[in-house]
Design a protein around this nucleic acid. Structure first.
Lengths: 213, 213
DNA sequence: GTCTATAGATTGATAGAC
DNA sequence: GTCTATCAATCTATAGAC
């Protein structure tokens, strides 16, 4: 954190605590303490705690969603060129892969991944609304392409299966940082799982669930 | 809330706010205000805010898990009698159905369901640890029976697929009380979905994902 | 831009009268 | 068991010196 400027140090520290303890359970003093900046610096640079949270999300999600959108549009356009339906596995891969690979890109990335893994289920609507607002248009694009890929599936069934998939995804991102009680054999399994095989496993699971007869 | 005694009124009010706003974002004053009891009554009857949370969980989870355990053991014993493997769908039905049907049992039940739908992904470990401690032995039983049902599946793959299923389930319980941005057609789909068809949909999705080749 | 100091509000918990 | 009153700690946010 040495060479970074104040704003970035605050963002990194906030990301860490928001991910580990949640938004309301993190105080500005914890953040400024870890970032080694003055307490007043948060309000000087960001205006409020909530505006800080918004920037924590946007710093990572805007570039990440740009990649996801490009991936999704490519899958859709390729299918159109070939005159066939998009492949469900390809669609979900386009959506999922950037997030999971970002997770493996470094230790600070893990903080953020744990945060978005829980964003949909945050208790109060502060976090949830900021997250959904950023994600919504991309989610609609995903729904539309999946509807092309699974034209025979009733819309409400597609909606629910996509929600199941979002839940599976969010929970997976979330627990990648958590521990389990007792010294159970499963504990090691998590840490030993490589990121590529995890992507492979969740893609197979989700694709199978989405395509169920 | 009129005829109920103080302790039960506090439990109901706490359940409501813990589910809606989360543990740390709920104050004892909110709880006692809704329950129409004195502020000091919480510490008199429960000892602390955290002990109150524990009782909120236990009041519903202990009877619910008793049913789930009986269901699971019945599925396992039936399969043993017949000398065949347990059926994956039957196993997951035994685990899932009591929760979803409890959800439909009344308006207060919805508060609790939203709470456990988020328990696994709560920001801080207060809520999560209490929940996991109550659920752990049942979860292990579920894992063991599923391992019998899917003997050819590597243990780490089974573990992850079960985690995906838990995520799907938790997210589904959680969003059953939430709204989505904009007036999107999907909004109506949620509220119109009947509980039995929701159970059917999630069972089909999860079973298909667990059994994927 | 960074600091100290503090305002102003809210919190969980408790003491003690009734 | 229920009440009032209050403590001690915490929080976000800001004012003002440097």
């Amino acid at each position: 954190m040495a060479g970074l400027d104040t704003k970035e140090r605050i963002l990194n520290a906030a990301e860490h605590f928001f991910a580990r303890d949640g938004f309301h359970n993190t105080s500005l003093r914890m953040i400024t303490g870890r970032a080694k900046v003055n307490l007043a610096a948060v309000n000087y640079h960001f205006g409020s705690k909530e505006a800080l949270l918004k920037e924590v999300f946007e710093r990572r999600l805007i570039p990440l969603n740009k990649i996801r959108r490009e991936n999704l549009e490519r899958v859709r356009d390729d299918a159109r060129k070939k005159g066939c339906k998009p492949n469900v596995r390809d669609v979900m891969h386009a959506f999922i892969e950037p997030t999971f690979h970002f997770m493996a890109s470094g230790p600070e990335a893990k903080d953020f991944i744990a945060l978005i893994g829980r964003a949909l289920s945050e208790p109060d609507d502060t976090v949830r609304n900021i997250f959904i607002h950023i994600m919504w248009s991309l989610f609609i694009l995903l729904v539309e392409i999946l509807a092309d890929a699974l034209p025979e599936l009733p819309k409400n069934v597609l909606f629910w299966r996509l929600q199941f998939s979002m839940g599976a995804m969010a929970h997976t991102l979330h627990i990648s940082q958590k521990s389990f009680p007792e010294h159970h054999a499963f504990m090691n399994i998590i840490s030993e799982t490589e990121i590529d095989s995890l992507i492979e496993m969740i893609l197979k699971y989700i694709t199978s669930g989405l395509e169920a007869s």
